[in-house]
Amino acid sequence: MTIKTKVSICLPTCDRPELLVRCIESCLMQTHADIEIVIGDDSRDDRTAQLIATRYRDDARIAYRRNVPALGQARNVASLFERASGDKILLIHDDDYLLGHCLERLLAQWERYPDLEVAFGDQYETDHLGHVDHAASQRMNAAYHRTADAAGLQALPGRTGIVQMFPNNGWLADAALVKRIGYEERYGTCCDYVFGTLLCLAAQRVCYVNEYVSCYRMTDVSVSQATRRTINASSISAWHFLKGLTLPRELEPARKLAYRRLVPIVVSLLARNHEARAGLQLALGNLYAYRFGFSARLYYHLLMIWKASRHGRQEPVALLGRKDEQPVDTSRTRMP
């Protein structure tokens, strides 16, 4: 079955040709050969276009397009999904890369479960140069609930997305389902998390493979790193999205588990940005995220909030009650 399956590897890129080569080469070296690499380039200069023309001009597997004007993260990814012609779609960001057996291992799950819709595995964490940090990789996967005892078909597929078990890229899914879910620009830097959550909520069969299949590169130039200490941070967007999500009762524990991770991050961000009242409201309203006061992190954040309250500022922007916040229809960047 895997031999007859065409996979579209969707690769958004922007101003990083020096990292892009490693990513493309990892795609071309897959042990599963029936692929196309669909590239959407939002770069501000011609370096990436020149790279593709020089190095990959004669490779029929690569479908490159320069976006003029640039589309932005979400619309670029959405356009790649639309252009994809394969039976399955895999997303990989330009600063990350795949292990050689990635597609083979993930596609093998469809042989075990013919009605499968989504499969994903573990990610290595690497430094800027691509060197794997094994200890950090184990911690990262464990933090996102990717452990040996969780391997196999997921009893509650939607939970996989809600608690961030589903990775930001390196996953494989049925193309029809991916195209139905799509990427939405309104979620900003949080669009990866929103997509993964909605994809898993829509899927009936999701499989986690307890094996490394891709590499997540830590850089200082990603969208999430550039905004991580600001009000535009992906964690705040994720908080709003998750709070407005309509879920069945059996998935409410997953929402609470996700809050346990998100709440302290959002409280810290609110305090850093002088939103003391909103930060205090969120912390006191979700004390379980701080082990009901048995976490030193709570008192550190309360100190941050106190300092923010003494800082001269304008009226708060009510980040925890935005007028544009709407419930999310579950039928249809990178998180920290």
Rank of each mutant, 00 (worst) to 15 (best):
I37G: 03
R75V: 04
I62N: 02
A53S: 14
G72P: 06
R55C: 08
P69S: 04
R61V: 04
D58F: 02
D42V: 06
V38Q: 04
R57Y: 09
T48D: 07
R75K: 13
I52Q: 02
Q73V: 11
L51C: 10
E36W: 05
R65K: 15
S43W: 01
D59R: 14
A74Y: 00
D45S: 07
D58C: 02
Q73A: 13
A49H: 12
R44P: 01
R66G: 02
G40F: 01
A60Q: 13
R55L: 10
A53L: 14
V68C: 09
D46E: 15
D59W: 11
R57G: 03
A53N: 15
Q73G: 08
A70V: 04
D59G: 08
D58Q: 05
R66L: 11
S43V: 03
R55D: 10
T48N: 11
G40E: 00
D41W: 02
V68N: 14
T54G: 04
T54Y: 08
D59F: 06
D42F: 07
Q73I: 11
D45C: 09
V68M: 12
E36F: 02
A74K: 00
T54R: 14
T54P: 02
L51Y: 04
R66H: 10
L71F: 11
I52C: 04
D41E: 13
R66F: 10
N76R: 12
G40R: 00
A53D: 15
I52A: 02
T48W: 03
T54E: 13
A53F: 09
Q73T: 12
G72W: 12
D58W: 01
L71S: 06
I52W: 01
D45L: 07
D59C: 12
S43P: 00
R75Y: 05
Y64M: 10
D42C: 10
R47Q: 14
Q50F: 12
D46W: 13
A53Q: 14
L51S: 07
Q73R: 10
A53R: 12
A70S: 14
R75E: 09
I37W: 01
D42N: 15
A70N: 09
D59T: 08
L51G: 05
D58P: 00
I62S: 01
R57S: 12
P69C: 03
V38R: 03
R47D: 08
N76P: 02
V38D: 05
V38S: 04
V38H: 04
A60Y: 05
A49V: 07
I52E: 01
I62K: 00
A70E: 08
R61E: 06
A63H: 15
I62D: 01
V68K: 13
L51R: 06
R47I: 11
L51D: 07
R61N: 07
R44F: 13
R57N: 08
L51F: 07
G72D: 12
G40V: 05
T48P: 05
R65G: 00
R44H: 14
D42K: 06
A53I: 10
G72F: 07
V68W: 10
A49K: 12
V38L: 06
P69R: 02
R44N: 14
A53T: 10
R57F: 10
